[in-house]
């Protein structure tokens, strides 16, 4: 049984993860809740971690695997109101996850669990030549700009600048973040990095980002992008395979 202070914040986490995955197996134990899965086309990986400290209350015995249909979970979470607390309660007898919104009253959905097991995928230990910390909304806006021009985007680090650019058949777009840019928090690089990525996936991954959030991007040349940010007490990490010429 786990209680989160803001159901509305957690809704953004579920919304974002549901953009990429159809189902997920949550692992709940003493440390909190984690989950990791690849999308059906094996292009993207999502890793979710909600530390025990993010919960207002958290009770567990042993370790539980909770298989969830994300489309159904998302629909339920969309019913969260701004002051609702969220209680997630595993009913092992009925094989259901109770999703409870608590405010002036108490609304309870019982979500049927899926018979899936947690994926064995580990996050690969990749060494990245460039790490960029950036205001999340600035990154999201640059991706939306690029989306007007093409279906892919190039993320580049060169000369202490982070660049988002794309070329369409007729039109081009580029956004530059250098040390003078207030959106850039930090940039560390050993040489250049340049990789191209599918924009649809990237836009799905940044869906939950709002003003004030900070994203951390790990980049290389023709290497998967690692993207990290925190949302509603959850740490989200994404890996996205590049497009290569």
């Amino acid at each position: 049984r786990a209680t989160l202070e803001s159901a509305k914040e957690f809704k953004k986490v579920v919304d974002t993860v549901a953009q990429i995955l159809d189902e997920i197996c949550l692992i709940a134990n003493e440390d909190g809740i984690t989950a990791r899965a690849m999308d059906p086309s094996h292009v993207a990986l999502v890793s979710l971690e909600i530390p025990r400290l993010s919960f207002e209350d958290y009770e567990i015995e042993g370790e539980k695997e909770i298989g969830i249909d994300l489309e159904a979970f998302k629909k339920i979470m969309n019913r969260a109101k701004s002051k609702d607390k969220l209680i997630l309660e595993l009913d092992e007898e009925k094989n259901k996850l109770n999703v409870i919104f608590e405010n002036s009253g108490r609304r309870k959905f019982s979500l049927a669990l899926l018979d899936i097991s947690a994926s064995e995928i580990k996050m690969p230990e990749i060494e990245y030549p460039a790490v960029v910390m950036l205001k999340g909304d600035a990154f999201k806006e640059a991706l939306k700009d690029a989306d007007l021009i093409s279906d892919y985007v190039i993320l580049k680090v060169e000369d202490n600048k982070f660049i988002v650019e794309t070329k369409g058949e007729l039109n081009d777009f580029s956004a530059e973040f250098d040390e003078d840019s207030s959106a850039l928090i930090s940039i560390e690089s050993q040489g250049h990095a340049k990789s191209a990525f599918n924009l649809e996936y990237l836009l799905d991954m940044v869906k939950g980002i709002k003003a004030g959030d900070i994203v951390k991007l790990y980049l290389g040349t023709d290497m998967p992008l690692k993207l990290e940010y925190s949302l509603g007490g959850a740490n989200l990490t994404f890996l996205l395979a590049p497009r290569i010429e």
Partner: peptide
Amino acid sequence: KNKQIKLIDFFNNY
């Protein structure tokens, strides 16, 4: 034109 790579290709390499 560029081609979408799958993550598995990288998992095998790393």
